[in-house]
Design a protein around this nucleic acid. Sequence first.
DNA 1: GCCGCCCCTAAGCGCTTGCTCACCAGCCAG
DNA 2: CTGGCTGGTGAGCAAGCGCTTAGGGGCGGC
Lengths: 207, 207
Amino acid sequence: MGAAAQRAAEESEEWAGVTPDAARRLVSAAVEAFAERGYHATTTRDIAGRAGMSPAALYIHYKTKEELLYRISGIGHEKALRIMGAAAEAEGSATDRLRDAVRTFARWHAEHHTTARVIQYELQALSPEHYTEIAGLRRSTDRLLRQIIQDGADSGEFRADDVPGTTLAVLSLCVDVARWFSADGPRTPDEVGALYADLVLRMVGAQ
Amino acid sequence: MGAAAQRAAEESEEWAGVTPDAARRLVSAAVEAFAERGYHATTTRDIAGRAGMSPAALYIHYKTKEELLYRISGIGHEKALRIMGAAAEAEGSATDRLRDAVRTFARWHAEHHTTARVIQYELQALSPEHYTEIAGLRRSTDRLLRQIIQDGADSGEFRADDVPGTTLAVLSLCVDVARWFSADGPRTPDEVGALYADLVLRMVGAQ
DNA sequence: GCCGCCCCTAAGCGCTTGCTCACCAGCCAG
DNA sequence: CTGGCTGGTGAGCAAGCGCTTAGGGGCGGC
């Protein structure tokens, strides 16, 4: 299976863990709607309509509209964390690991820009308890990236005077891909990943 | 007047162009509310309340809630454009101009992070006509930054293989400051500006 | 004194929102 | 056949929304 075909399969299976089928259709419809108009501008009638159901059917599978956002945020942030974790735990120099981390992380935010937009920009709509939980996942992702950059600074591969600041900038750069990326635009997710990996390696003085 | 005092004065005069006083208080209240909860989650009652008025008073000064967002977006984006323009039209090498552009642009997004958050992340709530108008201001800002980077690439100061892509990344980096910056955080706006100018100069291979 | 003007408020209209409730079709086990 | 369980529907409730309208207080000019 080629890389493109593999990612297409991942796309269709993005919500494979959500069962039964009706619950998965609702999640998928909600992601579309939230990404397009934002959480607060999306109505439960709109979500149910996109999933081909009556408004009341939503409440068989989810207690509230916020629970839908919570599920989406949880699954999405766990996926993002796994991507960062795979790069951080790989063998290789800090340069190799940082290149891989930025390439895959930025590429995911481009490829899944609808999901990414929701999980990165609609966080404030979560309940305080759910927000706290999701914020923990974000901190884990942050820590993994910071460790790669710290390793490179320690080994002398990178020239990074301010490791936390640089980490913040790199993460911000990758996350913001979700805001501007469009499938109709001139760049493919692969190209975005390659460009960003290149820019970030220069940022840390690795080339 | 010191730099900090000068910026404090700018802060209080951010909406000085809006008259009469009641209209200015409403704009100021709306920016706070929109930044905190988002446009759609903010009610006209909330805005009026923060401005110390009854809900109906809002409609004496603005035809709709959307018009408030439109005014805020217009003033904010014009300010951002002027900041970028001042750096672009200054004397000096491309390196000097890029450093200045990123430092002032990123600093503004930190210092005025409430306003910046509204104008950068609530654009989709504008009417189509207003959105088109504001998008023009954004394109102007983009062009100014791209020209600086192009100049540096042409003169050999920068090593930028993909000028539009690099421009996009730099702009994205600066704009996203508005999302994560907090006045309670460990960094001052000046420090963010200095850090980001440094990182971006490395990104384009100028150091 | 009083008129006209500007700015504001109390009350509320029509509508949409998130969510509920009474009810029901299909299906599988006994 | 029947009874219960799963997953659905149509109708609608209470609350909150953006916005309107009728009316009033204070102020300057005559």
